[in-house]
């Protein structure tokens, strides 16, 4: 067999394999993508919450995208405490001003950043939240202070529609 012929055959086989592999990949993708959030799930983006009945020092919990959102109306002392913490004492340094648009209202995803449990209100060493699963302590700004959780509790996208209504998402 001449060298030229060998080359052509190699090219033919390589091309066949390559084209076949592309097709296989294109076929596998829909099977993977079908597990991503579907169009109806993506559409449920926002929820509106009436906060007129929440008194200072109380927290309400609402469901958003299948997860609890804590909405806490903080007292003046709590706000002062949250603002007084020095950033260098924090595991995940964030200013309270960056976490609460309106210092009176803390809107936060009530999910422990360790492994996803829901922390308990007004528990723990820092007068904030305490996760019973693996003992993470959060302060009154929802920042991690002690325990295995790596970051502060997440702040969702939200806005004040009017004085009594918060739109989450």
């Amino acid at each position: 067999m001449s060298e030229k012929k060998t080359k052509r055959r190699d090219f033919l086989f390589t091309a066949t394999y390559a084209v076949g592999a592309v097709g296989l990949g294109a076929t596998v993708w829909p099977m993977i993508d079908q597990m991503n959030p579907d169009a109806s799930v993506k559409a449920l983006a926002s929820t509106e919450v009436d906060i007129s009945s929440v008194n200072p020092g109380n927290t309400i919990t609402v469901l958003w995208r299948g997860k609890p959102v804590f909405i806490r109306r903080r007292t003046l002392e709590e706000i002062a405490e949250a603002k007084s913490v020095k950033l260098e004492n924090l595991k995940h340094p964030e200013k309270d001003e960056d976490r609460a648009k309106n210092p009176e209202w803390l809107v936060m995803l009530g999910v422990c950043t360790h492994l996803g449990c829901v922390p308990l209100d007004q528990k723990g060493d820092y007068n904030g939240w305490f996760c019973p699963c693996h003992g993470s302590h959060y302060d009154i700004s929802g920042r991690i202070r002690k325990g295995p959780a790596p970051t502060n509790m997440e702040i969702p996208k939200y806005e004040f529609v009017d004085a009594n209504t918060i739109k989450i998402g």
Binding site: P30, Q34, D38, A39, S40
Partner: peptide, 8 residues
Amino acid sequence: DVNYGWLI
């Protein structure tokens, strides 16, 4: 609604 659901 499901991604590629119609195809599958």
